[in-house]
């Protein structure tokens, strides 16, 4: 392949784009995976993502430290997750509906407090240049990697190990598969789910921080367009496994990077179509994976999504 050709440029832009675009998917999907493994669905992660993006940007602007912004975003997300878990703990409350409500609520808080931060520019997260070995500018550009991406990949492997090999992972899986068994073992179903949903919210908040502090790298009201929701579908497609979640997030990142990659070589026609590519991909993946025997086998037993 000859470097500099249009195909090579698109390919490099897509690889770079996939790494950038997939990071929020990766965090939200891992968080939602943990929540769902505990037997609960949090559809409100879309709102959590927006709230995380806003609070990270605001914190970074006020304190000058983007990493503090990431932490605050995570804590804000954790608060949203724990609110979800607390409401769902009440009897007769539907977790999907509460998720929709928190989607609106989180977006409402973020837009309300985020208004003054649309204009100013906040310090952004640094990136690690891993493309120094190459003298090709496209390769260098594509391999500027954000530390959060590396953390996310490491987290996927860690969670895969922890779910299988630690006591906490076992308790989580038992709670998700059978409330009765969890109670018989002496664990509080509500507490486990509170922790799992709070953890999921934390990760979704961090995913939001990536959006506003790295890529696209600014705060505005149209920042998140369904990534939080697509991540929920992605978890189903990945059949609740951390490593498959990571691979699916990369796939989604690549799909999301098609539009901007083509734009980079001047193809703007059909931009809106390519923008819709991740949604269409999600829908097809759901058609393919829903109701399949494999999905039903791997689904946590207490999950209301796979009725």
């Amino acid at each position: 392949m000859e470097p500099g050709s249009a195909f090579f440029m698109v390919l490099m832009a897509m690889i770079g784009g996939a790494i950038r675009v997939s990071t929020p998917f990766l965090f939200v999907a891992l968080g939602e995976m943990i929540t769902e493994r505990a037997g609960r669905i949090n559809l409100g992660l879309e709102g959590t993502l927006v709230l995380g993006a806003m609070s990270a940007y605001a914190t970074s602007y006020q304190t000058g430290s983007p990493w503090l912004g990431v932490l605050v975003a995570g804590l804000a997300g954790m608060g949203m997750g724990m609110l979800h878990a607390t409401i769902c703990r009440l009897p007769k409350v539907n977790d999907i509906a509460v998720g929709i409500a928190l989607m609106l609520f989180g977006t409402g808080i973020a837009f309300f407090f985020g208004k003054p931060y649309i204009q100013p520019s906040a310090p952004r997260l640094p990136s690690i240049p891993l493309g120094g070995w190459s003298d090709n500018p496209q390769v260098v550009e594509a391999l500027k990697i954000n530390p959060l991406f590396i953390i996310g990949i490491a987290l996927a492997f860690f969670l895969a190990w922890a779910l299988k090999n630690t006591r906490a992972g076992l308790i989580l899986r038992v709670t998700g598969d059978s409330e009765v068994a969890a109670r018989a073992l002496g664990h509080s179903v509500g507490l486990v789910r509170l922790a799992a949903t709070g953890f999921g919210g934390f990760l979704a908040g961090v995913g939001g921080a990536f959006l506003s502090l790295y890529y696209p790298g600014s705060w505005n009201e149209g920042l998140s367009s369904g990534q939080g929701l697509m991540a929920v579908a992605l978890v189903i497609f990945a059949r609740w496994h951390p490593i498959r979640c990571m691979l699916a997030a990369l796939l989604f990142g690549a799909a999301g990077a098609i539009g901007p990659a083509l734009q980079s070589i001047g193809i703007t026609q059909g931009y809106y179509f390519f923008n819709a590519a991740p949604y269409i991909l999600t829908l097809f993946l759901m058609i393919g994976s829903a109701g399949s025997k494999k999905a039903l086998r791997d689904a946590p037993g207490e999950l209301s999504l796979t009725r």
Partner: peptide
């Protein structure tokens, strides 16, 4: 207005 709506929704479901 969005915030008030979201709040109503959360309280309503609770």
């Amino acid at each position: 207005v969005l915030l008030l709506q979201g709040l109503c929704f959360v309280v309503l479901l609770a």
